[in-house]
Design a protein around this nucleic acid. Sequence first.
DNA 1: AATGAATGAGCCTTCATTCAT
DNA 2: GATGAATGAAGGCTCATTCAT
Lengths: 212, 212, 212, 212
Amino acid sequence: MAGEAKARRLPRAVRERQMVDAAVRCFARSGYQAASMDEIAELAGVSKPLVYLYLGSKEELFTTVIRREAGALLRAVAAGVGGDGVPPDERLWSGLLAFFTYAAEHQDSWVVLSRQARTHGEPFAGEAARMREEIVGFVAGLIGEAAGEAEVALGGRDVEALAQALVGSAESLAGWANETSGVTAKEAAETLMNFAWAGLGNLMKSERWSPR
Amino acid sequence: MAGEAKARRLPRAVRERQMVDAAVRCFARSGYQAASMDEIAELAGVSKPLVYLYLGSKEELFTTVIRREAGALLRAVAAGVGGDGVPPDERLWSGLLAFFTYAAEHQDSWVVLSRQARTHGEPFAGEAARMREEIVGFVAGLIGEAAGEAEVALGGRDVEALAQALVGSAESLAGWANETSGVTAKEAAETLMNFAWAGLGNLMKSERWSPR
Amino acid sequence: MAGEAKARRLPRAVRERQMVDAAVRCFARSGYQAASMDEIAELAGVSKPLVYLYLGSKEELFTTVIRREAGALLRAVAAGVGGDGVPPDERLWSGLLAFFTYAAEHQDSWVVLSRQARTHGEPFAGEAARMREEIVGFVAGLIGEAAGEAEVALGGRDVEALAQALVGSAESLAGWANETSGVTAKEAAETLMNFAWAGLGNLMKSERWSPR
Amino acid sequence: MAGEAKARRLPRAVRERQMVDAAVRCFARSGYQAASMDEIAELAGVSKPLVYLYLGSKEELFTTVIRREAGALLRAVAAGVGGDGVPPDERLWSGLLAFFTYAAEHQDSWVVLSRQARTHGEPFAGEAARMREEIVGFVAGLIGEAAGEAEVALGGRDVEALAQALVGSAESLAGWANETSGVTAKEAAETLMNFAWAGLGNLMKSERWSPR
DNA sequence: AATGAATGAGCCTTCATTCAT
DNA sequence: GATGAATGAAGGCTCATTCAT
């Protein structure tokens, strides 16, 4: 009578996790539209109505996915950046390391956050933008801090623009590292520190490059 | 009597342009899947069968769009980068300026190339990747050239990684500039030159940042 | 209260039968191309997606129809032809009777097998050809057997040709009987036995017709 | 200025023939529905509107095709059957020979008449039925004549049924001969004469087969 | 807690057919 | 005599979503 391999009647929290895990994978592989609820339910090992019962709708499910993964990424980066009492370059370094590590160890999650969520309109793009802004905020904080220490005057928009540039290069390197065999998170972080911090270091000494 | 007298019976080349223009707009706004052929035909001011007659299928249409827009962007950037006889930092500067100008003046095109094409699987992602690699190649060439002049030894993978970082920051800044009112292409290019070239400048002096 | 209370939520097997039944009717009346899936679904009393869910595609559905009906016809004829120990003319007679009875009682099925399946290209024609070859094989077997008993030498190709002729006349008579009121299966079978067996009988006596 | 390979400005009759020829081929290969007007126009080497200008509509075109080919087949068979003063078996022989020869030499025509026209509903089936009835009429006439000579009483329905059987076996043998390499029209006609006339001969001698 | 059965709505695609030159 | 340009209409297929158990 018993003995069925498939575990049934699991507690709701466990089932939900399975479903959201499956959804992350499917959305990462196929994209929001191409991923079907059938596919997700099958990968989660449950029937489709159960997905609807627990997660609402496809849109709600994707939103749930984005929120959960964004939270995980933010927590990882925040832990890497650490708190006060540490010089900003050290904190940037460990933040980048945490970021590249997350992107490498949770590739589906990273694909969903960096591509799918930003490409499929509202409300997903907004959700992803909110997360990205938090990360840009971290970086902007560090840049502002460093500028303060170096007693260099940087406008808010300048800081914002530099943070956008740094975050963009991190995103690009993360994708490249994930697609290129043999590139570790540490190497990616080192490249970016060399590229960015050294450049920022010059900025701090008011050595600016200018056209002509 | 005159006015918008809905021009009919246009030559094929004109109609095709109208359709591809409409497709660029629709794919940029809605993405590949969400954009409907009805929508595109209506925006182009023709019936759906004509779109199929001239452009084949939705997939072929999207491919055509990507190729056309990628070609335009590449030509713009290549013209900006220019030829030999000019120092690499000058060439990077004018290349970036051309790039940010293109991204600002053809926002739909840029959205299609930077987001939609990369997010909707093969064969589109491959098409977009090919274009991006050309741009990365431009940048890598400039970095390699600069390293040569400064007599600094940089491994191929280092150059590639730095180019990926620089291109990523350009992409990020382009998106930010397009979403943020009052940021011009020139400002974006200046920010990036400060961020990147100054950093690269230090690298050329072998002043590397290292962990701990 | 009772009456045609549109039965809903039927088990899959029942629904599938209803659909295939409806498909037989539609394909017989309109042909493969002209029959629409909407039409079939409506006649089956279900929605179109259910047809696709259970039967796959129009092509698969038509193949399913052909296979099911061919199987039924073959079983009927095989039962009629019977086994050894009975003289070949008796077996031909009861086989023909079974055939004309089937064609009269399942006219849609017969139309699908004899016309639609053979007229709409591969893979349907092949499926129908396979069935027809089995029937031709039955007949060829009987003819060969009779030739053996009569100690007449008939080449394999002669037997095949005679079987083709006999099967063709049966097909023709079946169509004519179905279109002509008052012609029973028994009469059709008698006509054919008179036409064919008597002629074959002469052949057994080596009385061949020859020109001039 | 001149010199274009494609002959243009042909007289209407020639153009029409080209189109109907092309239509015969297309309808034979693809069937009525699957054959497209584009395909036919292209094979005829003209533009689509010209087909409509000359032949009306797809339905009219198919009807034209059936009528033209049916006429050709009937003329061939009628010429074969010949007139009075010749014994009925000789006339059947030469009629069958003419028929098998036509079917072998105009295979597309034969496919259209025997399959496509009969399978695609009204008004085509009626057109094809009319032609077939004429052929059945020829055969019925010969059978009736032979019965008269032999002073055997055959009911009208019996004659009709026998004619249907004979025509069906001819159709079947024609298809088989066309698909089987090495079977000539003469061989097919001989097989059928042996199969049919010998049997009918017995009938003439009032030797009937009966069950049990 | 969980699912088999079922559908409304929409999209891609094709084709016969016509218009204006 | 002949055609490039253009479309209304319809059909195959899929998918998110719900009902009844």
